[in-house]
Design a protein around this nucleic acid. Structure first.
Lengths: 191, 191
DNA sequence: AATAAATGCAAGTGAACACTTGCATTTTGG
DNA sequence: CCAAAATGCAAGTGTTCACTTGCATTTATT
């Protein structure tokens, strides 16, 4: 990847974060990247291609695979924290904002699968983990799919809401949120 | 509100669900609504105004106020279910998709406050409720803000993910999800 | 230094879009 | 039935956008 192409991609992603895909005009990109507009089209066949190329860079694609959640200690508290922490480490507010910006009809079909892959991987790893913990007699006889769904939703929901509304909604550190959520789910809040 | 204006709004909202705000051209709207394009501009000063007018209709604005969560029995299980159910009853997948479609730079500043109001109301009501339950000695000595954040995130996260990915991600009924989530949070999953 | 590749520059193209206008026709309400 | 209001129709405006072209200039390679 040459320097100019990289600069174009970075600038495009930057503007998408601010104004979404349709709001990121090639003129804007050129201006902010400090290059000529026609250079963009010498590097990329069309505007779409910039984003697609960007999504292929590790920098813009959270590295969520089953290995992301492989460091399991078979201790429910530290493991759940690990799941949530590693998810949030990769799925940053920036990525969430980016994926919202990518929901333009022009490119959604091509970007959606890449985005959807992430919750799916989390869900499968977590479900497998919970089932194994149940088998080992380390947790109650729960519905693993449903509990995994709760934890994914709580993890994703916090990330999304923080990314969207910032501190206006929650006045809560990530670590504190994870701590409290895991504590509730493990020990319950009832007496 | 006259019939034609209503038809325009409905059609606009329908197309926004499919293709977002910028994807909803006035030509499309006119065509699908079975009216002439210029009629749109006789009813509304500009395209934006259609959406703003739509968002003011109860039909497109979830009715989430503190009263939505007023039916409290002071029983933690049924109350938490009530919170989650009433939220999900109002904040439908359709509304979530709509609010995503409304994230165009052209109208975001004007629609954002309306959308943000909803999680905020939920959060405040739920926090107040948890504090009161704590005071009454009905639940553990928890961090009410943090637990409320978990429950909001879990509720919103499920709604969003279902709206985005449908059954491809979760194969889980809403009722079952709520049941399981509340059960985990109350009783915990640890032995 | 010579050559080739990358980039700048300026102008432009065609399409799509929001929005307008003037006038004919239909619908509505008293 | 009649007047006023609402809508249709057809054509058009100006702007913005993605994308192009031809040529000059700079940068990198050998």
């Amino acid at each position: 990847m040459d320097k100019t192409s990289k600069k174009i991609i970075d600038t495009m992603m930057e503007i998408i974060l601010e104004r979404g895909y349709t709001g990121a005009t090639t003129k804007d990109i050129a201006e902010r990247a400090g290059i000529n507009e026609c250079t963009i089209f010498r590097k990329f066949k069309e505007k779409k291609e910039i984003v697609i190329a960007g999504m292929e860079l590790p920098q813009y694609r959270p590295n969520i695979t089953s290995e992301t959640f492989a460091d399991i200690k078979w201790d429910i508290e530290s493991d759940l924290k690990m799941f949530m922490e590693n998810y949030m480490k990769e799925v940053t507010p920036q990525f969430v904002r980016l994926s919202i910006g990518l929901r333009s009809p022009q490119i959604y079909p091509q970007t959606a699968p890449l985005i959807m892959d992430i919750p799916q991987t989390f869900l499968h790893s977590l479900t497998d983990y919970l089932c194994e913990m149940k088998k080992r007699g380390k947790i109650k006889d729960i519905d693993c799919d449903a509990v995994a769904a709760s934890i994914l939703s709580a993890t994703f929901g916090f990330t999304f809401l923080s990314a969207s509304f910032g501190n206006d909604l929650f006045d809560l550190e990530r670590v504190k949120y994870i701590d409290s959520t895991v504590k509730s789910i493990i020990g319950g809040i009832a007496l």
